[in-house]
């Protein structure tokens, strides 16, 4: 059935055991994003070190399994990577989510985030998956501006 393909084991696992959740110091930028259609929200902080290395992505928020798991996966993928690398992952993830289920996911680039491919078939839920990723992109831009 359609629904079970959206609720991949990896998504449920991240929802039940979120990685890196909780807001931490120090940080360079903090953003707060909401999804007005469903009330999901996230506060997200980034700490960027030398050579654009992402030292920490910390977050707190509330929402459905898709939005919360997406934040957890983002934390794992971004931490220890660089700004440049992660922004290309964000772009690929956005392309996948906005592809209405017709875009082939690049697993090389996306890693675990490929588990969200099924969400793209549900337009109402795409924003849930993108909430934390858009917040991250915003935070990185702001951290560079400071």
């Amino acid at each position: 059935m359609i629904g079970e393909s959206m609720y991949q084991e990896l998504i449920l696992e991240h929802y039940k055991h979120p990685q890196g959740r909780g807001l931490r110091e120090p940080y360079d930028a903090e953003v707060h994003h909401v999804n007005p259609t469903c009330g999901d929200e996230i506060t997200l902080r980034v700490k960027v070190g030398d050579a654009g290395k992402i030292l920490d992505v910390s977050y707190d928020g509330q929402g459905c399994s898709i939005s919360q798991a997406a934040a957890s996966v983002l934390h794992e993928l971004a931490t220890g990577s660089t700004v440049e690398e992660t922004l290309s992952v964000v772009d690929e993830f956005t392309r996948l989510m906005q592809g209405r289920g017709k875009v082939e996911a690049d697993e090389e680039v996306l890693g675990d985030a490929v588990a969200f491919a099924g969400v793209a078939k549900f337009p109402a839920r795409v924003k849930c998956a993108l909430l934390s990723w858009m917040a991250y992109k915003d935070a990185v831009v702001r951290s560079a501006a400071t």
Binding site: M6, C38, G63
Partner: peptide
């Protein structure tokens, strides 16, 4: 422990049960 959007999605996808989820215009 389960968000209403997840409840509504699975009810619909698995059982064809149409309910409304959200704040129902009464935030």
């Amino acid at each position: 422990g389960i968000h209403p959007h997840d409840v509504g999605q699975i009810l619909d996808d698995q059982f064809g049960v149409a309910v409304r989820v959200g704040h129902h215009c009464a935030r």
